[in-house]
């Protein structure tokens, strides 16, 4: 619950909603997330917090804003009623480019980063904002899990780098920063954007290390969102290979390793992550530890 101090000070916060692949997203799914987002904004506004700015950060052109607004209004008309909706475009921008670009368009002292393909649970926004009452806290990290409704999505939920929705406390306590469910002090994130990198999900790890290197802590809270499960064998194949390449990129970035070390690092049990997370995860992922690929 947001405190009286935050209300008295009329703390201003902004949200950045990343919309990387507006061409291929499922608008029915997005609508569910945006409606939930509007509900969360209403919940904290009712407590006295200022009306926020919601930045939709997309990879299309500036001229796409009208079409996006039309679709968002059709799917979640409440969102425009409870917030100031703005659009920022970064043509061809990748995931972290859109995060960084969206942050620049915010005006609140606290910035919440989320994605268009996640759905917040009730109490999510309040849980993310509350720790910022402590002026020392720079980063508040939520709890993201994969939804599942069939064999394939259940398997993904078991092997993925997100903790499972329930019964996964040990893994969840060690979770890394979720770029789709995290809050920052604006001052910090503006001066520390996600680093540019060729990798797919490497920048988040680099930013997390930067945060820790400066002596800050990531404050984990139970601000829960579910992420729609990835679908399809083509995605499965592509994502697995990228996961491997990113693992090497992270090893290089964090250890400045030579090629021999890199090859040696990739050795060992290729299925270590799956074995630990799969076998031990069923049914409750007891005794698991972070697999070597488990960095978002």
């Amino acid at each position: 619950m947001v405190s009286a101090e935050m209300v008295e000070e009329r703390v201003r916060y902004s949200l950045v909603v990343e919309m990387e692949n507006a061409k291929s997203i499922d608008w029915d799914e997005i609508g569910v997330g945006l409606k939930a987002l509007a509900r969360e904004i209403v919940a904290v506004t009712d407590l006295g917090l200022a009306r926020p700015k919601v930045v939709i950060s997309h990879g299309g052109h500036e001229s796409d804003a009208d079409a996006l607004l039309h679709k968002i209004t059709a799917e979640a008309p409440q969102l425009g009623q409870v917030s100031d909706l703005v659009f920022t475009a970064f043509p061809g921008g990748r995931y972290y480019d859109l995060k960084n670009n969206g942050v620049l368009a915010t005006d609140g002292s606290i910035v919440i980063l989320t994605d268009s393909d996640v759905v917040p649970e009730p109490g999510w926004l309040s849980a993310l904002l509350k720790p910022f009452e402590d002026p020392k806290i720079i980063c508040v990290n939520g709890y993201t899990y994969l939804s599942h409704d069939d064999f394939f999505s259940r398997t993904f939920a078991l092997i993925w780098f997100f903790p499972m929705a329930h019964g996964d406390g040990r893994f969840a306590s060690k979770r890394a920063m979720n770029a789709n469910n995290v809050g920052f002090r604006r001052e910090w994130i503006v001066s520390h954007p996600f680093p540019k990198h060729n990798g797919f999900k490497v920048s988040c790890t680099l930013l997390m290390r930067e945060l820790l290197r400066e002596g800050h802590k990531i404050h984990n809270v139970n601000a829960r969102v579910y992420h729609y499960s990835p679908r399809g064998w083509r995605f499965f194949y592509w994502r697995a290979l990228v996961t491997g390449r990113d693992a090497d990129r992270k090893f290089v970035a964090l250890n400045s390793a030579g090629r021999t070390q890199r090859v040696a690092k990739s050795d060992g049990s290729p299925c270590r992550g799956a074995r630990h997370d799969g076998l031990s995860a069923m049914p409750e992922r007891q005794g698991c530890r972070l697999g070597k690929f488990h960095f978002p």
Partner: peptide
């Protein structure tokens, strides 16, 4: 799950 991590291993090894 093992197929996923086998592919991931190949991705990491081939890149390294």
């Amino acid at each position: 799950g093992q197929a996923f991590y086998a592919l991931a291993f190949w991705g990491q090894f081939s890149f390294a």
